[in-house]
Amino acid sequence: MLTGARRALKSGVGLGLRWEFLEEVLEAPVLEDVAFFEVSPENYMRRGGYYPAALERIGRNYPLVTHGLTLSIGAASPPDREYIAELANEVARLDAPWHSDHLAFTSGSGRAFHELLPLKFAVDTAKRVAARLEELAETLARPVAIENVTYYAHLGKAELSEGDFLHTLFEHTRAGFLLDVNNVYVNAQNHGQDARRVLESFPLERAVELHVAGHTRTPSGLILDTHGAPVVPEVLELLAFTLERTGPLPVLLERDNHVPELAVLLGEVRALRAVCDRAAAAHRLRQEGRRAVVA
């Protein structure tokens, strides 16, 4: 069990921990700009050696939030029990304040896809996922959150809008909402929607963490959620728009491809913090305005 790192995470900007800069983090003095690191537990589970040892050292100085990739919570079959048992050990080892994964299926027909496949926006899907989230939180003995994903195609006729799908889901679970703002933007661009209207349709009151990342536009015009570029200004604006409505939340910068120097990422973290600070001020003004109207 790690000690000393866990503290209440209610705001601040975190960074997805990548092996490209892991040693820099280990060797540097504590990075005051980074409120927490987020890690994919699959990279550390069921293994020994350098990385788990390094992560344990980092956990002494920073809170670590776990963000899984292969739970496959929306698949027809329930999530793999052996995997969840290993996951429980890992999130306990890291003393993660909560664990999150994706509103997706990542396996099926006995195979692993190693990709996030979107779910059909249907009531029975939402209820199935909600029940599994309750069970997961109990097994992990800590809060869990679920993230909206990008969808390049609709995998079946949607019975609900994405917003209604999310509302239905969160009516049936106590899990938190990990709102990926970049995914909202990417989906809106790819499907001809207004990202702000989409966001306003989401259950923002259930948000416990926000993600932002960069993306890649393909020659066909389709945007892929690659996490391989800096966050675009439109997504920063959408982040501010979200935070003005939710109030302060932990925000994570994800950068998984074409990872630049740590110093560059820290610059992006500081820029995000400035956005968060401005949004927090705007949120306070909105709250005061509401109180004034009520009075």
């Binding site: 698949a75 027809a76 299926f105 099926g108 027909s109 896809f113 990709e115 059909k120």
Partner: peptide
Amino acid sequence: MQSSLEAAVSALV
């Protein structure tokens, strides 16, 4: 539907 979707996705990818 989900099982059929998974089988189709598996074959497709």
